[in-house]
Amino acid sequence: MSVETDTPERARPEPIQAVPVRHPGRWLAVAVIGVLVAMFVHLLVTNKAFNWSFMVDEMFRPPVIEGVRGSIALLLTSMLIGIGLGVLLAIMRLSENPILRGVAWVYTWFFRAVPRLVLVILFGNLGILWARIEFGLPFDRQIGALFGVQDFEARLFGFTAVEILTGFVAGMLALGLSEAAYMAEIVRAGLQSVDEGQTEAAQALGMTRAQILRRIVLPQAMRVIVPPTGNETIAMLKDTSLVAFVPVSTELFFQLRAVGSRTFQVFPMLVAATIWYLLLTSVLLVGQYHLERHFAKGFGRSERAKIRLRGMTAETGGRTGEVGGA
């Protein structure tokens, strides 16, 4: 026999009115942080070395804006190379063909081992290797000689190295190729995070491997791929400052430093650089937020992206610290 539970006449109990737990530690922390913030603001306002009006005047001048444009162009192209090639490398790493797997592994090994700063300088000097870069059959002259043809050449096309492999293209290649190695690992982790059952179900429906990758696995992997790619993009934005060593001059940090050394106002221009990078990074974060929300569809976790966005500013410390050496 069960006890009767529906007793409508029973009064609803009074809401609980307990004394909440006090958090004196929190108040202490607020006080300490308050003092520190006040000290910082005081420094910003009173220290003449900031020279705010000069900084604001200079940081939006045409050459600096050119530099911003150059940095963004470099960021976009090198990330495009990085992501495209990274996806390709990840697929190669997961392929059944041992040669493809090996090639992808060696690539990743090389480009992760060499610091970006070194790569950038290296690519800037590749012109030393070849005066002209030509694409054609290897050993064409030797093969020609074998058949008794003198000066047999099977060149498809070529260009002068110093024209192409300097400046922007060299920087873009160095950054993009290096990024591909990191992206390959990220994409691989993403692809592997997708349940095997997804591939099986798609196979059972008669889809081919390419169709499964494009329509089923990659879209789901994106959920795992996008957040670290956001970090990579932010790290790359900062690493664009490395191309000053190629050398490339249409780049944000180079331009700001040039102003700084020309006017003997180095410090305000460093602050200007900080502000510019903060601004650009914030724009990237908004983009990342929307991408994450898009690929969270069906997973009921769009809330997570919002939380990430809030937490991101703390994480934006990039991988490479080489900028400091500039």
């Binding site: 059952g197 997804q198 179900a201 798609a202 059972a204 089923i216 789901q220 569809k297 069906g298």
Partner: peptide
């Protein structure tokens, strides 16, 4: 056609 124990619907 094949139907799996764990459904394997495409969640996205």
């Amino acid at each position: 056609g094949m139907v799996f124990q764990r459904f394997n619907l495409f969640p996205h």
